[in-house]
């Protein structure tokens, strides 16, 4: 028991804050968590992250869903507050045309080269 109290002290010392983990998230909530990037552990999604910030973010998502926001509204809300960076699924806009388009372009070019090689397309 003594060790446990040491442990709990340790945790409190290491993180000066109080965390409130979201209880029993729904499927939709999890989907949204997975698409939001945590600003503290920047390589992880809110779903994977253990940071306090991610937990707060989860609470906000749940609260917003309850108040009637749709999934898209929440993404819009987060984008407003933290910039496009927080979303793992970049939306198609001026900055990302090439991101979404280039792979397809490569696919088409590759296809054309192969068709010519196969003799289907003649010069």
């Amino acid at each position: 028991m003594k060790k446990l109290s040491i442990f709990l002290m340790l945790i409190i010392c290491l993180n000066n804050t109080y965390s409130f983990a979201v209880d029993k998230p729904t499927e939709l909530e999890n989907k949204i968590f997975k698409n939001l990037r945590c600003l503290i552990c920047q390589g992880q999604s809110v779903y994977d992250s253990q940071s306090d910030f991610a937990e707060s973010m989860k609470i906000v998502v749940r609260k917003n869903l309850k108040s009637g926001m749709s999934e898209k509204d929440i993404y819009q809300f987060m984008r407003n507050n933290y910039g496009e960076w927080v979303l793992y699924d970049p939306e198609i806009n001026k900055g990302t045309y090439l991101l979404w388009g280039l792979p397809f372009l490569f696919f088409l070019i590759g296809g054309a080269i192969i068709l010519r090689k196969l003799g289907v397309l003649k010069r």
Binding site: Y18, F20, L39, I40, F53, E55, S56, I59, N81, Y82
Partner: peptide, 13 residues
């Protein structure tokens, strides 16, 4: 208390 207000305001720490 739970950090939600800061997120709503767009602060992160």
């Amino acid at each position: 208390k739970n950090g939600t207000l800061s997120i709503e305001l767009g602060a992160y720490g």
